[in-house]
C-alpha cells in the first residue's frame, strides 16, 4: 500500500473491505482518481469498486469530489483516501469494542457455563439444566466449563484498550 501504512491500518482495511477492497485501496494514488479508472486499474468490477469506496467513505477513510463534464453534463466522482483519519477511526472502533467487552465480561462473570463434550455449543446453567445436561444438537453430555481464562483475557484486553484511548 502506498498511502496506508502500518500493520494495524492494513489489517483494519482488510477487515472493512476484504481482499478485493485491499487491492482497490492499494491502487488509490495520493491524488484523486475516478471509480472507473480504479476499476480499470484493478480489473475489479465497477460495482465492487464503488461499494468499497462508499464503505471507506462511511468510515471517513475516503472522500470524493464531484465534477460535472461541461459538454455531456455527466457527473464524475473523484476519490481520495484520508490516511489522516485512520487513527480517529481506530479510536472509535476501540471504544466500540470496549463497550462490547464490558457487556461480555458481565455476562461471563454472572454465569456458570456448561459445554457439549463434542464441541457443539456452550450453555448457561439454566439452559443446561433445562436440557437435563444433554446437548440438544448431538445428544452428547454437557459438562461444566471453566471460564476463568476467558474472564482474565477480557479484563486484560479492556485494560489495554483503555490505555490506548
Amino acid at each position: 500500500m502506498t498511502i496506508v501504512e502500518g500493520t494495524i491500518h492494513k489489517a483494519y482495511i482488510m477487515k472493512l473491505v476484504g481482499d478485493e477492497g485491499v487491492r482497490i485501496v492499494e491502487n488509490i494514488p495520493e491524488d484523486e482518481i475516478t471509480d472507473e479508472h480504479l476499476a480499470e486499474l484493478t480489473g475489479i468490477s465497477l460495482n465492487t469498486v464503488r461499494r468499497t469506496l462508499y464503505l471507506l467513505y462511511e468510515h471517513r477513510l475516503a472522500i470524493y469530489r464531484r465534477k460535472r463534464d461541461p459538454d455531456s453534463g455527466w457527473l464524475t466522482y473523484l476519490w481520495q483516501l484520508c490516511p489522516e483519519n485512520f487513527d480517529k477511526a481506530l479510536e472509535s472502533e476501540a471504544k466500540r469494542l470496549l463497550r462490547n467487552l464490558e457487556e461480555r465480561l458481565t455476562y461471563e462473570k454472572n454465569n456458570i457455563f456448561y459445554a457439549c463434550t463434542e464441541g457443539c455449543a456452550r450453555f448457561i446453567f439454566d439452559e443446561a439444566s433445562e436440557a437435563n445436561f444433554i446437548c440438544p444438537f448431538c445428544q452428547g453430555s454437557l459438562e461444566y466449563m471453566e471460564n476463568a481464562k476467558v474472564v482474565e483475557t477480557i479484563e486484560k484486553q479492556k485494560k489495554e484498550l483503555i490505555h490506548s484511548l
Partner: peptide, 23 residues
Amino acid sequence: ADKSNSKRFKSLMPVLIFEPCAG
C-alpha cells in the same frame, strides 16, 4: 507517527485476527 500509532492500537489485533466488531 506511524510507529507510535501502530503500538497504540495493537490491542485491536493482539493475535492474527483483527477485532471482530470493526465494520
